[in-house]
Design a protein around this nucleic acid. Structure first.
Length: 307
DNA sequence: AACGCGTGGAC
DNA sequence: TGTCCAAGCGT
């Protein structure tokens, strides 16, 4: 859960998740849809799909691998997570290099190549630090100390060098370039895409939903039926070709949502019919809290209900 | 190697 | 409002 996600965002999800799936076996025996429901709102849903596959692999093989290569071969576990598990769970002399560690190490050693080209040099330098006898004796504490140094002292922007225990050893500080490291490539422009989604309710207290393909963006998650997301806005009459039913559609409002690599502007159209029909499935309105609706779709629901 | 992949908080 | 970015991974 912590891959690219803040501790504050993760904690409530973590508590609910381990309560609902208390063991690897429980997670492995649960349907993927239940896992995606528990993950809904946290983002990067491939993590949930990978974690589920990982639990099944671990359960099938009778336990966790006990070495880094075995860990990294599991779905969703890369070099960082394998090292973190190795150091923290198994006490192996591994150095997990996350964004915090990259920042600390690039500064201490004044590695001023731009990211991501600097990654190999940073990793090598981190491994040198990890070769210190004290680090090798306490791999978990060493990893946690690097995380916390990066999170609270050696921060992005202007770091708190005045209270840093490594200020005397920091090459970037000596050069006065600490605030500019690690160097990053310029950002790319974020394109805008447009779509139309349909909120269709009926007399039985249901709404029509559908499941997205299990690969790609929001893979396996639930959504309101809608058009494709494209670079040009939709004329209402064109979007109607994708409406689930002929009905008295009304404009419920507009939703804006920013993804990592594009911005999305959605028009929400709403209608009420005696009984919903169309591709997808009817879900009870009073059960939407438990649905696998990603945040962008919850915004659409909120807009439709409020209109 | 570069890109696709979510979300919400901090500033 | 916009911008940055967080305990990365898979392709």
């Amino acid at each position: 859960m912590l891959q690219q996600t803040t501790v504050g965002a993760v904690i409530p999800y973590y508590e609910r998740f381990v309560s609902r799936f208390p063991t690897v076996r429980a997670l492995a025996d649960s349907p993927l849809d239940a896992v995606l429901s528990a993950w809904a709102g946290l983002g990067y849903y491939a993590r949930a799909r990978n974690l589920h596959a990982c639990a099944r692999a671990v359960a099938d093989s009778g336990g966790f691998p006990s070495d880094l290569a075995g860990l990294q071969a599991l779905p969703g576990i890369g070099a960082y997570t394998a090292a973190a598990i190795g150091a923290i769970a198994f006490g192996l002399p591994a150095v997990p290099v996350d964004g915090n560690v990259e920042r600390v190490v690039s500064r201490v050693f004044a590695i001023d190549q731009p990211m991501p080209a600097a990654k190999p040099a940073i990793r090598d330098a981190a491994l040198r630090l990890g070769a210190d006898p004290m680090a090798r004796e306490r791999p978990s504490d060493f990893a946690q100390a690097l995380f916390d140094l990066g999170a609270t002292v050696c921060t992005p922007g202007v770091p708190a060098c005045g209270v840093c225990p490594w200020v005397g050893a920091c090459a970037a500080r000596a050069l006065g370039i600490q605030a500019s490291l690690p160097r990053k490539a310029p950002k790319k422009v974020r394109p805008v895409r447009y779509g139309v989604h349909f909120w269709l309710t009926d007399d039985a207290g249901c709404v029509l939903l559908r499941t997205r393909p299990y690969q790609g963006l929001l893979g396996g998650m639930t959504e309101l039926p809608g058009t494709a997301w494209r670079a040009t806005p939709w004329a209402v009459e064109d979007a109607m070709a994708d409406a689930p039913m002929a009905a008295a559609w009304r404009a419920a409002g507009q939703v804006r949502h920013v993804f990592t690599h594009f911005e999305l502007i959605l028009d929400v159209l709403a209608a009420h019919v005696p009984r919903v029909e169309g591709a997808g499935f009817a879900a009870r309105l009073d059960a939407l809290d438990d649905a696998a609706l990603p945040s962008v779709m919850r915004k659409c629901v909120r807009m439709a209900v409020a209109s």
